[in-house]
């Protein structure tokens, strides 16, 4: 009897994930303040690919506005969710996430400083805030984990959340302080800190794609090591995992991904908390499935949230970060109570 013992997804399951992803994407490109039929959408995309200039207003909306935005949103959602899954595995803690640990706020502070001081790298308009956000994300992660470790060596849920929240408040306070003195930029900066993808361009999508391909790829390659950590760090060491190297690699990858997301869309909380949790319920805790599932799930989730954000109160647009935080905080309470009961 030959049984299928693979721990990763089977081709059919991958196909389903891809189909769900594509369907969501088409939906999000078609729906908006101006309704556009799928047929028209495809025609516009085909024309653009063939190099023809846009003929109608609708194709300009699709090619110039919606498609770059939806692509950026999908990639950012995937990245945030992948980071959540990775950190939750590494720290053996289902509540770890860029937002609950204060990493997103730290990254946002970095990006804000870059925006205000006009820190730009020559020739690369996006690089300044992105690099600062990544550096601040990494710095925040190290600071938070260092503080937690000094408090209790087991890196328990409660300590991480507590320090994370406090750090988050600290970073937010500093941000508010900076924004207060920013005069004319105040409104746009405030909107950015709440998390929004309005005005995303292909350049944003390309940046996120590049970072995701490199650092997300590395994370996906560490599925077995993350499994070992999710079982327990001591066990990981005993079975021969290079514990220190995996920790550093994972934290650097997560910082790069979160930092890039924040520099593009501001702080979009709880995506990395909600999505991996749902994926874990559906496909189990094994990171060989959990990481790809979180990747697809994160993009679908954030695309839908972004769609809701720009259509619910149309023509007024909500910051998508507000929406994810609304959903996420309720979720957080549910997970917190459930894990509390399990112990």
């Amino acid at each position: 009897m030959k049984r299928n013992r693979t721990e990763s997804f089977r081709p059919l399951e991958l196909l389903l994930l891809a189909a769900a992803f594509l369907a969501t994407m088409i939906l999000c490109v078609c729906v908006g303040s101006v309704g556009i039929t799928p047929g028209e959408t495809f025609r516009a995309i085909a024309d653009a690919v063939a190099g023809k200039t846009a003929e109608s207003v609708n194709s300009t909306i699709i090619i110039g506005v919606r498609l770059p935005r939806v692509l950026t949103v999908a990639l950012c959602g995937a990245a945030l969710s992948l980071c959540g899954a990775g950190m939750q595995g590494l720290l053996r803690n289902p509540l770890a996430d860029g937002s609950t640990m204060g990493v997103s706020s730290g990254a946002a502070l970095g990006a804000l400083i870059a925006l205000l001081t006009g820190f730009y790298l020559p020739g690369l308009p996006l690089a300044g805030p992105t690099v600062m956000a990544i550096l601040f994300a990494l710095g925040s992660l190290l600071l938070i984990l260092g503080l937690v470790f000094a408090l209790d060596h087991s890196l328990s849920t409660h300590s991480i959340i507590l320090i994370g929240v406090i750090f988050s408040m600290f970073a937010s306070a500093l941000m508010s302080l900076l924004i207060t003195f920013s005069h004319e930029k105040m409104k746009s900066l405030t909107f950015w800190t709440m998390g929004s993808f309005s005005g995303s361009t292909y350049r944003h999508a390309l940046l996120m794609l590049g970072v995701l391909a490199v650092f997300g790829g590395i994370l996906l390659g560490h599925a077995r090591e993350l499994n070992a950590f999710a079982v327990g760090e001591q066990n990981a060491r005993n079975i021969g995992v290079n514990v220190k190297r995996v920790k550093i690699t994972t934290l650097v990858c997560c910082s790069a991904l979160i930092g890039t997301c924040v520099s593009i869309g501001g702080t979009i909380g709880f995506v990395g908390l909600v999505v991996p949790h749902i994926c874990r319920m559906l496909s189990g805790p094994n990171h060989r499935r959990l990481l790809p599932a979180s990747l697809a799930g994160g993009s679908i989730f954030l695309m839908l949230c972004d769609l809701a954000a720009r259509t619910i109160l149309s023509p007024v647009e909500l910051p998508v970060g507000v929406l994810t935080s609304l959903i996420g905080s309720v979720f957080f309470v549910v997970i917190f109570y459930r894990t509390g009961k399990a112990r």
């Binding site: 721990e7 595995g89 053996r92 803690n93 289902p94 077995r224 499994n227 070992a228 999710a230 079982v231 327990g232 001591q234 066990n235 060491r237 005993n238 079975i239 021969g240 995992v241 290079n242 514990v243 874990r280 189990g284 805790p285 094994n286």
Partner: peptide
């Protein structure tokens, strides 16, 4: 670490996985 683990196997005193892994997955690790 991997070299050491091929020679020396260690059963720790306290073991409890953080997530709902299956027995097979833990053994395969």
């Amino acid at each position: 670490p991997a070299q050491r683990a091929r020679e020396i196997g260690i059963l720790a005193q306290r073991n409890l996985p953080g997530y709902a892994f299956t027995v097979e997955e833990v053994v395969r690790l």
